[in-house]
Amino acid sequence: MKTPKMLTLISLVLLVLIFIASLFFTITLPQNQSMEQTVARYLENDPKYQRTLDSGETPSISPDEMAAETMSALQVFFAIPTIYIAIIAIIVLIGYTIISKRPKGAALTLFSAGVLSLATVIIPVLLFIAGGMLKKRSA
């Protein structure tokens, strides 16, 4: 039981670190000047904005002002993966706590968390290995 618990604990620690980094990024996004400049440059190169300039029209709002307004929408957009990571971490924590009492249930929980966290690459590998070991031992 030590190896599945250790793999699950490593996965949980990685998820918590990713969650903290994502939360920090999301909270500090409005103060992130480089991100705002990047959005402004993207908006300046937008074909629709360029057509407006080419036709001689004056845009109602500058790219810098538009980028400043966009930052709040981006903050909401980046909050979604942060919440998603928190949910996966909670599922892994539940799986970790039930490993000794219910290995089959823990295996199912870890497999579920592994599928949900496929985008992170390393974490699902650890969770699938831990879940497979638990399933094999409980059978």
Results as ranks from 00 to 15, higher is better:
residue 66 M to Q: 13
residue 125 V to I: 13
residue 78 F to S: 01
residue 6 M to S: 12
residue 138 S to W: 03
residue 66 M to I: 05
residue 76 V to P: 08
residue 112 S to K: 07
residue 76 V to H: 14
residue 44 E to L: 01
residue 30 P to L: 06
residue 100 S to H: 14
residue 66 M to H: 03
residue 79 A to S: 11
residue 128 F to P: 12
residue 52 T to G: 13
residue 3 T to Q: 03
residue 48 K to L: 08
residue 32 N to W: 11
residue 122 I to R: 01
residue 89 A to L: 12
residue 44 E to M: 10
residue 22 S to D: 03
residue 81 P to D: 14
residue 80 I to R: 03
residue 60 S to R: 12
residue 3 T to E: 03
residue 114 G to M: 04
residue 115 V to W: 14
residue 56 G to C: 09
residue 112 S to Y: 13
residue 67 A to V: 03
residue 19 F to C: 01
residue 50 Q to S: 02
residue 19 F to Q: 06
residue 79 A to D: 13
residue 106 A to R: 04
residue 87 I to D: 13
residue 5 K to T: 06
residue 52 T to L: 15
residue 35 M to K: 14
residue 64 D to Q: 12
residue 53 L to Q: 15
residue 25 F to W: 01
residue 42 Y to T: 07
residue 121 V to T: 10
residue 34 S to A: 15
residue 91 I to Y: 08
residue 136 K to D: 14
residue 65 E to I: 03
residue 5 K to W: 00
residue 110 L to N: 09
residue 137 R to W: 05
residue 104 K to P: 00
residue 129 I to N: 09
residue 7 L to K: 05
residue 57 E to Y: 15
residue 91 I to L: 13
residue 24 F to Y: 09
residue 14 L to E: 06
residue 23 L to P: 04
residue 121 V to R: 00
residue 50 Q to G: 04
residue 90 I to H: 10
residue 30 P to H: 02
residue 102 R to H: 14
residue 119 A to Q: 06
residue 49 Y to L: 03
residue 18 I to A: 11
residue 83 I to F: 15
residue 47 P to I: 03
residue 137 R to P: 00
